[in-house]
Design a binder for these strands. Structure first.
Lengths: 202, 202
DNA sequence: TGTACATCAGTGAACGCGCGTTCACTGATGTAC
DNA sequence: TGTACATCAGTGAACGCGCGTTCACTGATGTAC
């Protein structure tokens, strides 16, 4: 709040926010630390005090992304009926929602290159997202995917279909879905997600 | 073949090949025309005669990618039984194969930014890939997805599941699948692809 | 409570680098006669 | 078939730019006494 303060106060958080804007506006290939610093209103050498290199910043950003990713799904689920299938569909719609509203970040999160795969925070955040999926499916199928390989196949199938929908929509494919009203699109997305979830459930 | 020839002969093709190597080794964010020229053994100003800017080169590369993408699927299908479901599974395995063997190119093809979306060659190539998918599914469901919206939903569902599997495998998620022998992996992938294709088929 | 001092966070000038682009050039190829 | 000339494809030096990185610095914050 100190207007004239020499020190920023919470530059780390400000850098992360600026990085997200930079990423979505410039894209991953034009992303630069100098650009992020400029956006945060800070000298271009300042970020080095918090993030050694762009990779570190992107890794932290990806970790935050996974947290928000899970939150987006949970927010959807709170508004949905509590039966397992409705919860599954809601989570799937949240998955797609997050991807469409955070395209560059979503791609970064599922990129194989940029973020540091050995980063503990990132790994914890992405594992949490995966565990959430496993639990949602467990509620449908009743058996624990971690101990039942058939149930794990169900997990992979469901994950793939939701992820595929999200990635294809981002890519601008599936024009017919993109051109619909959001509610119509969600009706069809739910149908697609749930048709795949008829396993083990009765 | 002319060793000492001043003119390259087919620099355009050589540049495309070099660009593919550059893309897979450096990644999209470190991709540069100078790097491509160096790889092709040519001065760094030479590419400008064929491709105005990196974007044009990447667009042409994406178009070639879609052609090879379809070919990979067809090659798979030729080795498979001729019934519609086996053909569908084979195409899906080809889809995943291509993605895993051409990770950066696959990501480029389904990127929303880089390639020029108004490029006629690219659009033709990507449409051909989509049409192939539609036809494969039509052979299972019997009704034309272009005239039957329920069948189009089938197309989207199948596309999503195959694409999702491909993208998640590339991203290094689905560790359990990645750690398997290729044949075991393909058994499970086929199962996942086909479980989704039980629509309309009997 | 006040003073001294260490530490920390951010500044701004400077650097070297690889990039895309420009430009005058050169040598090979193709065409007209 | 031979010659003249235009066009085309690639060269290599030069440029300006934004990048990451370094470094001496400055001013605020925190701590010891």
């Amino acid at each position: 709040m100190s207007k004239k303060s020499y020190h920023h106060g919470d530059l780390r958080a400000a850098l992360l926010q600026a990085a997200e804007t930079e990423l979505s506006e410039k894209g991953i290939e034009a992303f630069s630390l100098r650009g992020v610093a400029k956006r945060a209103g800070v000298s271009h050498a300042a970020p080095a005090h918090h993030f050694g290199e762009a990779k570190g910043l992107l890794t932290a950003l990806a970790a935050i992304g996974f947290q928000r990713f899970v939150e987006t799904q949970q927010r959807r689920q709170q508004k949905a009926p509590s039966n397992p299938k409705a919860q599954m569909a809601a989570a799937g719609l949240g998955y797609v929602d997050f991807a469409m509203e955070n395209q560059a970040l979503f791609r970064l999160m599922f990129s194989s290159q940029q973020p540091d795969k050995n980063d503990a925070t990132l790994n914890a955040a992405s594992s949490a997202a995966f565990d959430k999926l496993v639990k949602d499916i467990q509620h449908i199928g009743k058996s624990d995917p971690y101990h039942d390989s058939a149930a794990m196949v169900d997990v992979m199938a469901t994950w793939a279909i939701v992820h595929g929908l999200a990635d294809l929509l981002i890519a601008g494919r599936m024009k017919s879905l993109l051109n619909m009203e959001k509610t119509d699109r969600e009706t069809i997305l739910s149908e697609i997600i749930l048709r795949n979830c008829s396993f083990n459930s009765n």
